[in-house]
Design a protein around this nucleic acid. Structure first.
Length: 913
RNA sequence: GGGCGAUUAGCUCAGCUGGUUAGAGCGCUCCCCUCACACGGGAGAGGUCAAAGGUUCAAGUCCUUUAUCGCCCACCA
């Protein structure tokens, strides 16, 4: 048999092959009738027109790790993929495309435009899901969903109608955030407040039939054209006498009243505030209280309307400039003061939003909030990390009604019809034939569509077939977990909880894991618009998907933002290469072994499949006990870490197990035995090696699905099996954990490292075997070393070890010691005495400090009285050990210094004296 | 204006419920292209845990204050 395995891991073809195979075989198709506990998760649906960026990769990686991990542990697992129609975002993208072709989308008309967007969706909407397939996410593609599909639209309509019937959805004339660029209302959450430097203009309004005047301060002088009043505080002595009088509004020749309202802050500006009910939320409320008329002086696209008189037709910012100039010209501008204040901008296009009173649909939130708070308080929904709960509660308790209508064409059309005859509204699931109030058939559907987040709020149950009672819904709802970024806790998470409780009576998920944000090296948030996004597909081509996944996992400590740098993925790429080469070692040597006449069938014996350890004798027994014990430990730790969403811990654990324990120690230790002339030993060694490797691959699989799948299929014992993804995650027996074996191997490792350390210091030729002497205070230790002499000698490159009966000195060689042993390598040439002395001195200082502090500590009566007895006892033991070590070091140092420079006054021993 | 978080090795970060000598990756130094891997092996150097107080027998870990830097929320013109 020939196995051609390239020297370096080349992920490209392998990944593509498996990505395709997994989808084609429908490997991850969920079966609601299958047994096992349920693990279900719905994807946070990305924008259909988007493409994956590294930020997506983080939650997709986390989701996929957990999904694969659960699946391998026997859960009935569903990972449901899908996309969001992303109203404003998509409409803007397509609008821009059309504009590039010289087409103004408005001239196409609504139906045609919608057709174009659907076409666009068909053409490019697959990008993101194709990327997901490429990176091997283990979703059930047969259950892919789209928020604007007929099925999900049906759920949206159902929810809207029910909420309307309960009076939770209403239509009202109210202040909204208007984006003049997108020409639609947007919600509070979709506006971004930016601190901007501006001015506070002080404008004088003359009092009618009087020589007096009132000065108001404003940041937006152009809105004065829409002023319908001026307000002062009722207790303000400066203005008390003017309350009820009228002012003449410059330019507009309109008389407006002075009203009193406690809302006014006497300290700010002049204590008199102009009131523009149509263009400011506070003024809107104030205007309502005082029956001031609304006067909208702007158009949908942010220009001054006919109501703005002489300024009609001007852009709002041009109008501001002109108004200020004209005020100045008429001597009505008192003064101008610099003033920084928060300006609301549209999150999509960054245009300054215009607060505007208009007719919109709203969803009443208060009645939905209470139960949604309760389930988080009770822990029925657990938010991780916990400190995000506060933010959630805070927002929920101060929630305001949600403006759900958008003046767009792309989205779920509001199922409401206006009657031309009686002006009443009919809300219905199906297009009604006549008006519910007057029976007229002159009905026209409301032109608005719903906020994208309205359908997103239903995602966990609409994707499973709601409002029908489907097997999927029964089996997989509530979902187990939601993983998403903390930036959408309000947009999405909170609303899903409210809607889930309202319409299914159940929470939509039990856990919410909020991950952090991926940033660039200079701390910027990754985003395409800023050009700081990194295309994961490029990264994957260069380093491999597994490397990227592993890198993200290594960085993903809960609640911490992570910074993406290229060197990190290099290190993960190297790890993949390490795995590859460990496999290469196994397979290449297996060929040689096979040549000696042992068949693969023998290796593929059932006990390997069960990963039965300890089948060999001699020193093999210890090392095998050790590696299986390590495996058991690490598996337990990985399970524990993943249980708590501590991905970084889990990733570190598998990394060090594979690279450190398995490659550096186990394989190195086992090498000679794999070709032992005693065939039973060799076979046993191979069996154990393959068993560990097999388990290690399964342990690694959730993190690095591609390379593990590829290598796993090359394992002789796995010939013909379908996929590692469907195999069992390592489930070690408790009996595999053997603390004594772990301690014993750790001690042998220490001896080997000590020897290597001396060799390095002496600059011995790397292959030259030298003799060593060893003193151990305990007979047990000596026996252990004798029993494992061959591997110790080999790994430490020693020719032999002679056991000493007394403490070792440094006279004839360099010594390394721990409380359990002292090791000396004697050499005539190559000793670096100054280096040894430097090292010992440092050791001396360290020990002196340590002994000192421990002595002081133990002398403290309060410590002895209050600390747990165990702590005191431990400390006494360590102190005894340290003191002994310290004495040894002093003695050795004295010797060395005498040898080197007997007359050197700096060579005196002992800091403690 | 509220709230949350960060400050640990040259760099990027771990360090959960306080208890031996504070860890990792990268970088750095030295040795080695040893028949899996130079995307490698071996051995090292490097930290008064932002500052000051406090709680405690014991603090990187808990509390307070300060400094610096982030983020989120917020209708005061």
């Amino acid at each position: 048999m020939t196995r051609e395995i390239p020297k370096a891991y080349e992920p490209q073809q392998i990944e593509q092959h498996w990505a395709r195979a997994w989808v084609e075989q429908q490997l991850f198709r969920a079966d609601p009738s299958a047994p096992g506990p349920v693990f279900s998760i719905v994807i946070p649906p990305p924008n259909v027109t988007g493409s994956l960026h590294i930020g997506h990769m983080l939650d997709h990686t986390e989701i996929d790790i957990l999904t694969r991990w659960h699946r391998m542990r026997g859960f009935n697992t569903l990972y449901l993929p899908g996309t969001d129609h992303a109203g404003i975002s998509t409409q803007r993208v397509v609008g821009r495309k059309l504009a590039e072709q010289g087409i103004d989308y408005r001239t196409l008309g609504r139906d045609e435009f919608e057709r174009r967007v659907w076409k666009w969706k068909e053409e490019s909407g697959g990008t993101i899901t194709e990327q997901m397939r490429q990176i091997g996410e283990s979703c059930d593609w047969t259950r892919e969903r789209f928020t604007l599909s007929p099925e999900l639209s049906r759920a949206v309509t159902e929810v809207f109608v029910r909420l309307y019937e309960e009076g939770l959805i209403y239509r009202a004339h109210y202040m909204v955030n208007w984006c003049p660029q997108c020409q639609t209302a947007i919600s509070d959450l979709e506006t971004i407040h930016e601190e901007r430097r501006g001015n506070l203009w002080y404008i004088r309004y003359p009092v009618v039939d009087s020589s007096e005047s009132v000065v108001v301060a404003t940041t937006r002088p152009e809105t004065m054209l829409g002023d319908t009043g001026v307000a002062v505080h009722p207790e303000d002595e400066r203005y008390k006498h003017l309350i009820g009088k009228r002012l003449r509004l410059p330019f507009m020749n309109r008389e407006i009243p002075i009203v009193s309202d406690t809302f006014v802050d006497r300290e700010f500006g002049t204590g008199a505030v102009k009131v523009t009910p149509a263009h400011d939320p506070n003024d809107f409320a104030l205007g309502k209280r005082h029956n001031l008329p609304e006067l909208d002086v702007m158009t949908d696209d942010g220009h001054m309307s006919a109501a703005a008189g002489p300024y009609s037709g001007l852009d709002r910012f041009a109008a501001r400039k002109r108004v200020v100039e004209d005020l100045q010209g008429q001597g009505l501008l008192e003064r101008v003061v610099e003033h920084t204040h928060a300006v609301g901008t549209c999150e999509r296009c960054m245009t300054v939003i215009e607060p505007r009173a208009s007719n919109q649909w709203f969803c009443r939130m208060k009645p939905l909030v209470e139960p949604a708070i309760a389930v988080v308080e009770s822990g029925e929904i657990q938010i991780i990390p916990e400190n995000r709960r506060t933010v959630y509660f805070e927002w929920m308790r101060n929630i305001r009604d949600w403006c759900i209508s958008r003046q767009l064409w792309w989205g779920h059309r509001i199922p409401a019809w206006h009657c031309a005859d009686c002006a009443e509204i009919t809300v219905a699931r199906e297009s009604p034939a006549k008006c519910a109030t007057c029976g007229s058939s002159k009905l026209q559907q409301d032109p608005d569509v719903l906020d994208t987040w309205f359908s997103s709020a239903l995602w966990p149950f609409s994707t499973l077939g709601w409002p029908d009672d489907t097997p999927d819904l029964r089996k997989y709802y509530p979902t187990s977990l939601l993983i998403t970024g903390y930036e959408i806790i309000f947009f999405w998470v909170a609303r899903m909880i409210m809607m889930g409780l309202k319409f299914t009576g159940k929470v939509p998920f039990h856990h919410v894991y909020m991950h952090a944000i991926v940033r660039t090296a200079d701390g910027q948030k990754m985003s395409k618009s800023k050009g700081t996004g990194i295309d994961p597909v490029d990264i994957n081509r260069k380093y491999g998907t597994d490397a990227m996944r592993f890198t993200l996992a290594l960085m993903a400590a809960p609640g911490k933002d992570l910074i993406w740098t290229e060197d990190k993925i290099e290190s993960s790429r190297n790890f993949a290469n390490k795995i590859w080469n460990a496999a290469r070692f196994l397979f290449l040597n297996l060929e040689k072994f096979e040549a000696t006449g042992v068949s693969i069938e023998q290796l593929a014996a059932p006990e390997i499949r069960a990963a039965a350890p300890y089948s060999a004798g001699g020193d093999l027994k210890l090392i095998n006990c050790w590696i299986f014990s390590r495996l058991a430990h690490v598996t337990a730790q990985v399970n524990d870490s993943l249980e708590q969403y501590r991905f970084h811990e889990a990733a570190h654990q598998v990394y060090h197990f594979f690279w450190g324990d398995f490659c550096d120690w186990y394989i190195e230790w086992m090498k000679p035995h794999l070709s032992d002339s005693d065939r039973s030993i060799a076979t046993a060694a191979w069996r154990n090696l393959f068993a560990v490797f097999d388990a290690a691959l399964r342990l690694l699989h959730p993190f690095m699905p591609f390379i593990t799948e590829e290598l796993w299929h090359k394992l002789p014992q796995r010939a013909g099996a379908k996929s590692i993804a469907l195999e069992q995650f390592p489930a070690p027996q408790p009996s595999w954990i053997q603390e004594p074996a772990e301690e014993q191997v750790a001690l042998l490792q220490e001896i080997i490292v000590a020897a290597r350390n001396i060799r390095a210091e002496m600059k011995l030729e790397s292959k030259r075997r030298v003799a060593a002497e060893l003193f151990t205070p305990e007979e047990e230790t000596r026996k252990l070393i004798e029993a494992n002499l061959a591997p110790v000698l080999r790994l430490a490159t020693l020719s032999n070890i002679q056991f000493a009966t007394a403490h070792l000195d440094t006279a004839s060689g360099a010594v390394r010691s721990t409380p359990k042993f002292e090791l000396r390598i004697s050499a005539d040439e190559g000793r670096d005495l100054p280096a040894e002395i430097a090292k010992l001195r440092k050791e001396r200082e360290r020990l002196a400090r340590d002994v000192q502090s421990k002595t002081t500590r133990l002398a403290d009566q309060t410590f002895r009285n209050r600390a747990p007895a165990e702590i005191v006892r431990d400390l006494e033991t360590t102190l005894a050990e340290r003191s002994a070590e310290y004495q040894q070091v002093l003695a050795r140092l004295a010797q060395l210094e005498k040898n080197l420079r007997p007359s050197d006054p700096g060579a005196s021993a002992g800091a403690l004296g």
